[in-house]
């Protein structure tokens, strides 16, 4: 599609963007968007197709808001963090590389980072470098209607993997990832040495990697 044609599509869809739609019910070209995987969705985002943003939201808003609520426990700030994370993906979509990971992983990492920023009172600009797509090669979800089933299975596997860790390793990982604590703060909180905290994090993540890789859930 030529640039001019792409802009015409972008402009037309932008005008339609505020119209309410049901889940996966994007109108017009949205049917293509709704049926596509991450790569197709990212291409539509780059083209400025707001139906694609609506589709991304419909797919992952519940998960994104769940992550923000887990970190922040505050509906208002969670709402802001989720909006900023979606806007980050919208603005940076051209940097998406399907080889490095899924849109979902990128989005959720952004939600988590924004939420931690709120928790720590940091401005988003201080994290700009980290807002680039992380190398998170978490498998792209299959198209509907299996997406939700697959997500449910993935959730169960990750929870099982976390539950399989020794309590102190699980605690170190959760305090860092969902609590936003630094390793020094965790060391102080748990009254163990910094080296021990680092070791627990490393061992825990290595075990999770082995567990999930064994179930084909991370592409390593």
């Amino acid at each position: 599609m030529g640039r001019q044609a792409a802009e015409e599509v972008a402009g037309r869809r932008a005008d339609d963007a505020a119209k309410p739609r049901g889940r996966g019910g994007a109108g017009g070209g949205g049917h293509v968007v709704a049926a596509g995987g991450d790569t197709e969705l990212a291409a539509e985002l780059v083209a400025g197709n707001q139906d694609a943003l609506a589709e991304l939201y419909d797919r992952y808003a519940g998960l994104a808001y769940g992550v923000a609520m887990r970190v922040l426990g505050d509906p208002g700030r969670a709402e802001d963090a989720v909006q900023e994370a979606f806007m980050n993906v919208w603005k940076q979509a051209s940097s998406f590389d399907g080889e490095r990971g899924s849109l979902r992983a990128w989005l959720l990492a952004s939600v988590r980072n924004r939420s931690i920023d709120y928790l720590r009172g940091r401005g988003a600009h201080e994290r700009r470098e980290e807002e680039l797509q992380p190398e998170v090669a978490y498998g792209e979800g299959p198209p509907d209607p299996w997406r939700e089933v697959a997500l449910s299975l993935e959730r169960a596997a990750v929870r099982d993997a976390m539950a399989s860790l020794p309590a102190e390793q699980r605690q170190a990982i959760e305090l860092a990832y969902f609590g936003g604590y630094t390793h020094s703060e965790i060391s102080d909180m748990t009254r163990v040495s910094l080296g021990t905290v680092k070791g627990r994090m490393r061992l825990g993540l290595e075990k999770l990697s082995s567990y999930l890789r064994g179930r084909g859930l991370v592409d390593v």
Partner: peptide, 15 residues
Amino acid sequence: HVVGALPVAVDEVTP
């Protein structure tokens, strides 16, 4: 890769 999987464990919450 593993850290990217962690948020999947969280329950979805309707915004």
